[in-house]
């Protein structure tokens, strides 16, 4: 499967990638985007099977990215990996069509728990 990681922090993209490997998902293909607009373009060109996205990003936030995908009918599975995990944000994410929201700081156990059903 192909997985798109969208985060404006290159360091955080590396940490998400490392955590995915630790969770046992390192054999999948990964594509990286440095903001929401680039992620939207890469969803179109790369057709990932899953998007893992930060919430706060320049040029298009994660929730704007998700809404832009859904409004065009793109059903790609989508999860947030973000520094904020309030109930309000989780509800907003769910209503927009996200599968899950993982709050930073996270562990590989969290990734395994959220993604094992889909990726294993």
């Amino acid at each position: 499967m192909k997985i798109l990681i969208a985060d404006d922090s290159r360091v955080m993209r590396q940490i998400v990638l490392r955590t995915m490997r630790q969770a046992g998902f390192g054999h999948h293909d990964f594509v990286e985007a440095s903001d929401g607009a680039e992620a939207l373009d890469l969803v179109a060109s790369e057709s990932p099977d899953l998007v893992l996205s930060d919430w706060n990003m320049p040029n298009k936030t994660g929730i704007e990215l998700l809404r832009a995908l859904r409004v065009t009918g793109n059903p790609v599975p989508f999860g947030f990996v973000t520094s904020e995990g309030s109930d309000e944000m989780r509800q907003t994410a769910q209503e927009a069509g996200a599968m899950f929201l993982i709050a930073k700081p996270f562990t590989s156990d969290t990734f395994e728990s959220e993604l094992s059903g889909m990726l294993s």
Binding site: S86, A103, K104
Partner: peptide, 26 residues
Amino acid sequence: DAVGEVLNVVGGSVKGALPGTSALGL
């Protein structure tokens, strides 16, 4: 990038603990 991201995660935790906080910057 790393130092900024550390503060970003701290800020996210603080925001979550303050019900009246609506937005966190970059």
